[in-house]
Computed example of a mutant assay.
Amino acid sequence: MHLVPASDAQKLQLDALTYSEWGRLLTLEGYLSRELRLRAHPWARADMRTWLLCADDGAVLASCETFRTGSFQRAPGGALLPGDSFAIASVFTEERLRGHGHATRLMDLLAAELERQPRAHAALLFSDVGPRLYARSGYRELPAWDWHLAPSPGAPGETVDSLLRESDLGPALDRMRRPELPFFFWPTPTQLDWHLERGRIYVEHLGCSLPQSAGATVGGSTALWGLVGRSAELTVLMFDARSPAEAIALLEAARREAHRAGLSRVVLWEEPGNASLLPLVAGATRIARDGSLPMVRPLRPDVHPPALLPVPRGLWV
């Protein structure tokens, strides 16, 4: 067995095979169009690769995608040293080929390939099949809790200093505090826009509107959000609240934006930095996440992801 990058023709063949797994809400034609559109996004064009596990005769046994994402190590003096990490998505084996360990072999060969990258830090994935499969290849699971809030009527801008537009993603990220940790992941504005592109694709199928804002600021605090996928929800992609009052104000603005767009709820991923604030938000409900279990694997011996590594929703692929 060996690992090879997929050609454009092979990517199209994979799209047809994976429709049954990930094509919910879309026709086959719509799903194929979605995949082409997402691969054409600037972030995917620059940082996405599709990988094939092939038998000795060239037959494809399993496949996956990787997206390069930013990460940082903190030097002993506190300086941040940038590097590359890789988010892994769409791990797929045809049903007739399952049960033979192909996915595990794919993950092992992929890790060896990624370890050879000159700035490699770590690999990150979001498992929908529990931790066992990926633990075989050295991945460690992280906590996975969601917070849900019901939409609320009212003007979203009334509780905050400003509402953000899609063009504000870069300045908004610059406002946010980096984690005070020896290692962490950090997305780019283009990476976050890839999530918003998913919402642009799905909105016509969901019976709702695209949110008019992409986030908000209040005091020193910032949140970024959007309609980002197959559910009519306002998803918080990044959240940096400096106080309980500012956390409440940001999430009230998100609730009002969800109501204005006709969305069913606001969803925020729990992180170490917001875990103590969210129970103070009236009406917020904590729920064990269904799928998208974050798992991380170092790609270098000097990279040590902490046990409570923050993984905001903006890192998901």
Rank of each mutant, 00 (worst) to 15 (best):
P298N: 04
L227D: 03
T188E: 05
R256E: 05
F184I: 07
R265C: 09
V218Q: 01
G219I: 12
L293A: 06
P298S: 10
R198Q: 11
A258F: 10
D193W: 15
G220R: 12
S213R: 00
L277H: 13
L280Y: 07
N274Y: 04
R200T: 12
R265D: 02
R297N: 01
R300H: 00
L299M: 04
T188L: 04
L196V: 11
E233C: 12
L192H: 05
T190V: 09
F183E: 05
I201K: 14
T188S: 03
L227N: 11
A245Y: 09
E252P: 06
A282P: 08
W225V: 08
H205G: 04
T217H: 08
L206F: 13
L280C: 07
F185I: 08
R242W: 14
G207L: 14
A214C: 07
S264V: 11
P211Q: 02
V281I: 14
R286M: 00
L206A: 06
A232Q: 07
L224F: 05
G215R: 00
G215E: 01
A253C: 01
G273F: 05
A216G: 09
L263T: 10
R256I: 08
E270N: 08
Q191D: 03
R256S: 11
G199A: 06
E180R: 11
S213Y: 07
V203P: 09
G215T: 01
A214K: 10
W186A: 07
T190S: 10
D240T: 13
A216Q: 02
L250Q: 00
V228W: 05
D302I: 11
R242H: 14
G226R: 12
V266T: 09
H195L: 03
P182E: 00
G291K: 04
L237W: 13
A241Y: 11
V266H: 02
L268Y: 09
W269D: 00
E233Q: 10
A258E: 13
P182T: 00
S231D: 15
R265G: 00
D290F: 01
H259L: 06
A247D: 03
R198P: 02
G199Y: 10
L206M: 11
G273S: 09
A249F: 07
E197W: 14
T188R: 12
G291D: 09
H205S: 15
I201A: 07
G219P: 10
G229Q: 02
L206C: 13
D193C: 06
E180N: 11
F185W: 15
S292D: 11
A282H: 04
T235F: 01
F183S: 01
M238R: 12
G207T: 13
V266E: 04
L251F: 13
L224G: 03
L234P: 11
